[in-house]
Design a protein around this nucleic acid. Structure first.
Length: 798
RNA sequence: GGUUUCGUAGUGUAGUGGUUAGCACUCCAGACUUUGAAUCUGGCGACCUGGGUUCGAAUCCCUGCGAGACCUCCA
């Protein structure tokens, strides 16, 4: 299993040996289950040269076995000496020692500095502790007297420990508790009452509230999603350990010289890259990547490249390159430079030759079958000259596609598949959208990505978690060629419910016309979201709200995105009225031919005394309301119109239904008659949106409205069980009602001026954006999102 | 199956050994309301399990359990 390949000898370590070190029975048993820990323990015991010791020493040795930094293994025996000889005798000292050694790494150990760092030989007398406790209590006296026994003793201990890192912590705490008892006397009733949880900074009075709101203004500032990324100058730690089946281990890290050269080139600035392959349209998952790559660079005042990772010309197109540049800009990001992996093809080629010359790559002719058994390729050890010649033949187009590849000579017997002599170059007689037909050999991701990161002096190479397993290979290439190594960190992919995100599946939906193109508003492509009416700011705030983590087992509910959409559109979208399914209402007590000009408010809180806050709404004898706002029955929780019932027309008058005119079918309601209340004395609960004939006999503005539902029925269509190899379960899960086109909607006259990109709230219906299909004759609106609806929840029937 | 990552309110997260475990959404209750909207007030609600280390563990170490991802001449 695991250990064999990593160069550990299976240790003959028995439980008794561990118990002899004073370890807890369960701890010892648990340790023996873990082969890596067992091996380390065996090595530590051997280095210590003891078979029995005190419990405290044993625990320290156990901590060394489990926590020792692997970049400083050469110093482990020295550390163990300190422990066995009791110069390092408690966990605090050991922690200091381990962090010191992590920084030293394989470099020579400065004993003096080391001993100082972990307090070797330092003795803190009990008197010193007592006197420091006195000082600390004195400094905190005000709080102590106020909070009495609710004071945070741990915090006080911490203050003492800061001044005496190597003092006896137990004695400190006992002393503090003793002194508190002296100061405060016996506990009162109040001291024993558990403190009641209150929201912090809760001002009781509303007057104080306004002040508080003003001062607590920037709480979002302290939540910086990029704070955990290291500084470029810190990039000298071991990135990863590359284990080989022969027991060899490479600990990939930058040497001082390489790091200095890198820092010189970048001026020490953070440099990132957003590296999409131009083989499709970008989706909201890429928005997360951009938020991280461009966002980090922006936050640290650094650079972010937009790099087209165009190593495989087969699916790549100029169309995608153009779209990606455009949509990156739309999302609000400005690349430092736009580059292409294909721009580096020459340099990559030369490094490949170098790799062959070093005996670290070879031309191979194996196909997939035959590589299953971890066996070396029969061509693995062919002469270097032969590989050089064949590689040259590949480059010159003398070798057929599939007949040869260049493989990196990594480790075919490795525990992990990601070191199985990965392909560096393959032959493809496909013209390249950016490089043209100059090349017929193309580098692989594994070979090219790390190197181009290095060429571009990327400080933080950030990608999604599925790339985590390729770390060894990433660094293998850079170590093999002696190149600068970026810091790599992976984050979780974004999954959103009731939709799919993989480019392959998106491509299929588009090319097989399950949807209306890459920018179909039901898709989570950035183009689709934009067309639907979602702004760049909304997308970015949605991403920011989720955070950047390595938790990869979550499916974000689509409703979460809807929340952010509403949050913004509520502030930015002006209001208007549209009736989706019109029902004619004749106002019988309004004289025929009369048109009353009313004012609708563009925003609920727009200033009342400004003309720009309003739009004109004509009210006439023929008005239209929503069909669903009229019912023959009138249950208690229903606010709409019904026979004999009143409802308020928004911005206009209350109307009362006086008569129902049925159509041919008795169930049909052809139109209704109503009387309006010009005095507005009645106060009906229900408020309806409406559109009236702008002039007698003139039909209102007719518009097309497109309504959208979830694209898929299941929460996670991509995760659907699938027996067939070509997997179509997700296609069968497509929601047949995901799109509804309403052709005969009526709109208020002011909407005639709307142009593509405009966004509105149609009152009581939701937020809508003017679609690109609009023509001068006919406006088309997409519903971006409905309004939040608590009908049936709070205040409604349950 | 192998490799690997991740487990903090219902959801997404903050948390670098000492906090009354913070925030946002959801949910519940109320106020206001010419959008069953918005806004405002209040409330419910969490450290996966077991051990160890420590004066002190959500935090460090190990076990178990659970969930996800990857195993291409794709990136």
């Amino acid at each position: 299993m695991g250990t064999g390949g990593k160069g550990y000898k299976p240790p003959a370590l028995q439980l008794e040996k561990l118990l002899a070190l004073g370890l807890d029975q369960r701890t010892a048993e648990n340790a023996l289950v873990n082969s890596k820990v067992t091996a380390n323990l065996a090595a530590v015991i051997a280095e210590a040269g003891i078979s029995w010791c005190d419990k405290s020493v044993g625990n320290l040795l156990y901590a060394v076995a489990t926590k020792y930094p692997n970049n400083a293994l050469v110093h482990r025996p020295a550390l163990i000496d300190y422990i066995v000889s009791m110069k390092i005798k408690n966990p605090a000292q050991l922690d200091a020692a381990l962090s010191f050694l992590t920084n030293v790494g394989p470099d020579p150990l400065d004993t003096g500095k080391f001993e100082e760092a972990c307090g070797v030989g330092v003795v803190v007398s009990i008197e010193e502790i007592h006197s420091t406790v006195t000082k600390v209590l004195h400094e905190n006296m005000e709080a102590i007297l106020e909070q009495r026994y609710h004071i945070n003793v741990g915090n006080l201990c911490g203050q003492v420990r800061k001044r005496h890192p190597w003092g006896d912590a137990k004695a400190t705490k006992e002393e503090i508790e003793k002194r508190l008892a002296e100061i405060l006397g016996p506990k009162t009733e109040a001291d024993n009452v558990k403190p009641v949880k209150t929201k912090k900074g809760k001002p009781a009075k509303s007057e104080e509230k306004k002040v508080a709101v003003a001062t607590v203004a920037p709480p979002s500032e302290d939540l910086n999603p990029y704070s955990h990324f290291p500084e470029p100058a810190e990039n000298n730690k071991v990135h990863t350990e590359i284990f080989f089946s022969d027991g060899n281990i490479w600990r990939a890290h930058n040497t001082k010289e390489i790091l200095e050269k890198h820092l010189m080139a970048t001026g020490g600035k953070v440099t990132t890259r957003f590296p999409p392959e131009p083989n499709g349209y970008l989706h909201i998952g890429h928005a997360k990547a951009m938020f991280i790559d461009f966002g980090l660079a922006k936050e640290r005042n650094g650079y972010c490249y937009l790099r087209f990772d165009d190593t495989n010309p087969e699916a790549e197109k100029k169309e995608y390159i153009d779209h990606i540049q455009e949509i990156v800009h739309w999302l609000g990001w400005e690349p430092y430079k736009v580059t292409y992996t294909s721009d580096y093809f020459q340099a990559l080629y030369e490094h490949a030759v170098e790799l062959i010359q070093k005996g670290l790559a070879y031309v191979d002719h194996q196909i997939k079958e035959g590589r299953e058994n971890n066996l070396d390729s029969p061509w693995r050890d062919r002469p270097i000259e032969e590989s050089l010649k064949l590689f040259e033949d590949m480059r010159r187009g003398l070798i057929a596609e599939g007949a040869a590849t260049l493989r990196m000579k990594q480790d075919m017997q490795n525990d992990t598949r990601n070191m199985y002599d990965l392909i560096a170059y393959r032959v493809k007689f496909t013209p390249h959208p950016h490089a043209g037909d100059k090349w017929c050999i193309y580098p692989s991701y594994d070979y090219a990505h790390c190197m181009v990161d290095s060429f571009e002096n990327i400080t933080h190479s950030l990608c999604t978690l599925e790339f985590d397993v390729r770390r060894p290979s990433y660094y293998w290439v850079l170590v093999a060629l002696g190149l600068y190594q970026p810091y790599v960190w992976e984050y979780s992919r974004l999954n959103i419910s009731h939709n799919i995100m993989s480019k392959r599946k998106l491509n299929r939906l588009v090319t097989e016309k399950w949807v209306d193109g890459w920018d179909d508003p039901r898709l989570l492509t950035l183009a689709g979201l934009r067309r639907r009416g979602v702004s760049a700011a909304t997308i970015n705030s949605f991403i920011r709200g989720m955070g950047i983590t390595r938790c990869d087992n979550s499916l974000i509910p689509f409703e979460r995105l809807e929340y952010h959409i509403r949050e913004e559109l509520n502030k930015t979208a002006s209001r208007a009225m549209v009736v989706l399914h019109p029902l004619k209402v004749v106002i019988t007590n309004l004289e025929d031919g009369k048109v009353i000009d009313l004012d609708g408010k563009k925003w609920p809180d727009a200033p009342a005394d400004e003309a720009s806050s309003y739009y004109k709404v004509p009210f006439s004898r023929t008005v239209y309301i929503e069909k669903t706002d009229f019912r023959l029955e009138d249950p208690k929780d229903y606010y709409g119109l019904a026979p004999g019932k009143s409802a308020l027309l928004r911005y206009a008058f209350p109307i009362k239904c006086t008569e129902v005119i049925h159509g041919d079918n008795p169930d049909d309601i052809g139109e209704i008659r109503a009387e309006y209340d010009p005095s507005k004395t009645s106060k009906p609960k229900g408020v309806l949106h409406w559109v009236a004939e702008p002039a007698p006999g003139v039909e209102p503005l007719k518009v097309e409205i497109r309504l959208f539902e979830k694209l898929f029925l299941s929460e996670n269509p991509a995760g659907l069980e699938d027996k067939e190899p070509e997997g179509t379960a997700w296609l069968r899960d497509l929601n047949p009602h995901s799109k509804e086109v309403v052709k005969g909607a009526y709109a208020v006259p002011s909407l005639a001026a709307a142009v593509v990109g405009n966004k509105f709230q149609f009152e009581r219906l939701g937020y809508f954006a003017v679609d690109t299909d609009s023509t001068p004759e006919k406006l088309v609106f997409n519903r971006t999102v409905t309004l939040r609806d608590s009908y049936g929840k709070a205040g409604g029937p349950r």
